[in-house]
Design a protein around this nucleic acid. Sequence first.
DNA 1: CCTGCTATGTATAAAAG
DNA 2: TCTTTTATACATAGCAG
Lengths: 236, 236
Amino acid sequence: MTRKKVKLAFIINDSARKATFKKRKKGLMKKVSELSTLCGIDACAIIYSPYDPQPEVWPAPLGVQKVLSKFRRMPELEQSKKMVNQESFLRQRIQKAKEHLTKQRKDNREKEMTQLMFQYLSADKVMHNINMVDLNDMAWMIDQYLKDINRRVEVLTKNAQGQPQMVAPQVVTNVVAKVEDNNGQGSHGHVLDMNLDVMQKQNWFMNLMNNGGGDEAPPMGDVNHQNGFWPSPFFH
Amino acid sequence: MTRKKVKLAFIINDSARKATFKKRKKGLMKKVSELSTLCGIDACAIIYSPYDPQPEVWPAPLGVQKVLSKFRRMPELEQSKKMVNQESFLRQRIQKAKEHLTKQRKDNREKEMTQLMFQYLSADKVMHNINMVDLNDMAWMIDQYLKDINRRVEVLTKNAQGQPQMVAPQVVTNVVAKVEDNNGQGSHGHVLDMNLDVMQKQNWFMNLMNNGGGDEAPPMGDVNHQNGFWPSPFFH
DNA sequence: CCTGCTATGTATAAAAG
DNA sequence: TCTTTTATACATAGCAG
């Protein structure tokens, strides 16, 4: 039931290695044949193993010979061009893994913020002890949500403009900055305070969110945060 | 979003073919490298295409040369032994597809019978117009279910034998044979009748069921069907 | 054309038999 | 050990930008 992610290293256990070899060899041969059929190209695969006295090849040996003769006809130097060698291949995979990690962190951060936001919305009283970084990130995310809502309202309004007297409600909100001090003994006001200076320093999260639903630049220097009101998206 | 099962034939559309080629080439190279790493064996893949001036290979060209020299060292005749050629490969895949079809038919038949059986069990009155083949198949399936139940009862009884006075209930049933004539004007009794002779001729379904939960031979000539009682599975 | 996303199909590790 | 089954991870077709 494939519980491990397969650690891409030599399989120590003999029987497991053999089992894996047989399965993967079969799968690989199938892939080669499919690629050849689907795209009408020449390809071959040759696999040596201690389990078979002769190498397994695809396609028929004559086809392999044909491909090989083409290959050997090339000068050594030419062969190195445009080829995927082990080192560059590994480099690519490492790079991809790093990108994946970054993306995961973004997703995680976004989920954390969403959860925090709903915790806040459902709390009877104001939540203390939210650190400034979280507060900033969450505020920016709320910004994005609100902008999205206004955008949708605008679209709906335009679609319904044939109907006179229709006035789209405008979503505005009031995200005011006031950050409590560390021991929670500060202000107990029920309004979230935000410190613009700190926020401007926190561009990490903004970068994070750029991939998500947002389609605009991060709110660096966006003065809307200061008065807490968004300008109407209408009539722009 | 991958809605079609990919019909394993040359892709006519040029751009689609190229896109598929690029994706699958990458996937294939990854598979080759994984196989080589996981199982510690020598393998190579060479792919020609109109998109790349040079063939794509894995691993580095020197590694390919190494594998190729091994390969060319073999006599032509030896090369043909143990190898997967295109024809045998296709044969294998056709055979596998046929087996899959047969298995699907078995599963479908079993589901039909189960549904029919529960329809019967939940009907207020006896159901007419069940044809003889269905009736036989269903009766045999019921047999299998009952045998399975008895087997489980036996296991439970053995597990509980430390407790004196414990008597396992024995599941018996009464599947008596009486098949209505085609126009449904025959007997209206509430007991399923079975014709042993006909049943013995219907070994198709028995073959079907042998792969499923059954672990015994088909009930060919099993006289238990005549009196409708199973001998106790205990003390065997 | 390429890049990225997501739903779906395929490959396969592990567990059962 | 091999085969079959099952659940999970991976590959990728089609689409959108």
